[in-house]
Design a protein around this nucleic acid. Structure first.
Length: 492
DNA sequence: ATGTAC
């Protein structure tokens, strides 16, 4: 726990992949996807924080490499930046028997993720009714800190959401059964036990199903500007100029409360099981311990809660599209839904042997390649869609998983641009009102109840998403399919 | 990220 002087050695493996050699208490090396600029930024950040403050992201990668049971490498994707305990963009895979489970490896916004809806509209259709459409979405989709939805759940139903995820929402009339096929895990992970979720977490959940939340969460109307991979785009059924709608949100207060509750549990477990912890934020428990299992079955409830949330928001979105453009809701299909704050049991090859691993992805998306049974049949020949959220002023991407990604980083992807600047600093640097004005000038309508929230999310506070995507594409672990640009952004 | 906080 004491402050140790920083001495991080980092080696270039390829122009897009760097390695922190295994030394000291590290059980595996650290591996970071990035270019020279990424690494320089990380080292500079580490140097500045030598005197204290938050642990730099590069040290967080190294800390994770010391956790018991870690396999192959402690990995960070190209959108790496400092997070709680684990770096955001961090991927840590652990042996099921010897390994640990960590709250920080998932993050507090459990199963925060992105889903994308495909509309039959073109860019021109939306341009013609942009203001009206933006207002409709802003009215229909609850957004902002403490926002509540129309659904009120009784206690039995809360448990049902936690067990059934998106399936519960569909059963209640939000969306269609065929949506479930296009959600990672079909919108419902197993091993979810509501008995291990506190009463407080459940109480915080009951009015929040179908709400966007705040921070970097958003609903964005986008148009497809470029297609890079025709075969994959065909399989995903997306085309140039088409209007897509991206929904980025998570498990709201439910996930946050589960994280808070289990941080305490795992803190005690770390001591009980004598796990060497370099910093307080990285507390964890052996996965097979009772404490580890309790967290796992609780985090799965959070994961299902987030799936249900995005499912309900999809319905509200479809209704708004139907209202403004007279389009049948059934003609708005789901492209895919992926979480980027998760922990899952997955099979991966380690030293030539298929092994069940516990994979933590914190600000990293699962990115399975062609052929994996987890990928929906319609996409199985090209690989899983990866939904990468950029910033409200720049671009977002649709990528697909690759075999190299399966081999090198447990089938993982970047999840966004990645912050380059803290929220505090961004608020000092920009004014929400001015940003909204500037973006309107560029043809991007922002709808938000919080001006300071907009400033925190200023495009300039993030890394360049094009560069971040070029890194993982260049490294061969994620493949470019399409690039989209925003037209309307509804924010918390 | 979160009804801004041991």
């Amino acid at each position: 726990m004491s402050e140790k002087p920083l001495s991080v050695e980092i080696k270039k493996i390829t122009p897009y992949l760097w390695e922190i050699p295994k030394k000291g208490g590290m059980l595996v090396p650290g591996r970071i996807y990035g270019d020279e600029e990424t690494i320089l930024h990380l080292l500079k950040d580490a140097e500045e924080k030598k005197g204290g403050g938050f642990t730099p992201a590069i040290v967080q990668v190294l800390n994770v490499a010391m956790l018991p049971g870690i396999q192959k490498a402690s990995i960070a994707m190209a959108d790496i930046h400092p997070g709680y305990g684990f770096a955001i963009g961090g991927v840590g895979a652990f042996d099921i028997d010897e390994g640990v489970i960590s709250v920080a490896g998932v993050g507090f916004d459990i199963n925060c993720g992105v889903r994308v809806l495909k509309t039959p509209l073109d860019k021109d259709d939306v341009e013609a009714k942009k203001e009206q459409f933006a207002n409709q979405l802003f009215r229909d989709v609850p957004a902002g800190l403490g926002s509540t939805g129309d659904i009120r759940l009784n206690s039995g139903e809360i448990d049902e959401v936690l067990i059934k995820g998106a399936e519960f929402a569909v059963k209640k009339g939000y969306g269609f059964p065929e949506d479930l096929e296009y959600i990672e895990e079909n919108g419902k992970v197993q091993n979810a036990d509501p008995d291990n979720v506190s009463k407080k977490a459940k109480e915080r959940q009951f009015k929040q199903v179908g709400t966007l939340g705040s921070g970097n969460h958003y609903l964005e109307v986008q148009w497809v500007k470029e297609i890079y991979d025709l075969k994959a785009a065909d399989a995903y059924d997306i085309r140039k100029n088409q209007i897509l709608i991206a929904i980025h949100c998570g498990s709201r207060a439910l996930g946050h409360q589960i994280g808070t509750d289990y941080l305490q549990t795992l803190s005690e477990a770390s001591r009980k099981y004598n796990i060497p912890i370099r910093e307080r934020e990285l507390v964890c428990a052996p996965f097979k311990s009772p404490e580890g299992q309790r967290y796992f079955t609780a985090v799965n409830c959070g994961i299902n809660g987030a799936f249900a949330n995005r499912q309900v928001i999809s319905h509200l979105t479809r209704k708004a599209v139907q209202h403004v453009f007279g389009i049948d809701m059934r003609d708005i299909a789901l492209l895919y839904d992926v979480g980027h704050n998760t922990v899952k049991i997955e099979t991966h090859e380690v030293d030539g042997v298929n092994k069940k691993l516990l994979v933590h992805r914190k600000g990293a998306t699962r990115a399975f390649a062609a052929g994996r049974v987890e990928v929906p049949a319609a996409y199985r020949e090209v690989g899983q869609p990866l939904l990468v959220g950029g910033t409200m002023g720049t671009a977002s991407y649709i990528l697909c998983g690759t075999q190299k990604g399966m081999e090198d980083c447990f089938g993982s992807a970047v999840h966004g641009a990645g912050r380059a600047m803290s929220r505090e600093k961004a608020k000092r640097e920009w004014r929400g009102e001015e940003l909204i004005h500037e973006l309107a000038h560029k043809g991007i309508l922002i709808k938000s109840r919080s001006k300071s929230g907009v400033a925190e999310e200023a495009p300039g506070a993030y890394k360049d998403v094009d560069k971040v995507v070029d890194i993982v594409h260049g490294a061969g672990v994620n493949k470019k399919v399409a690039r989209v640009r925003p037209l309307i952004c509804v924010k918390g």
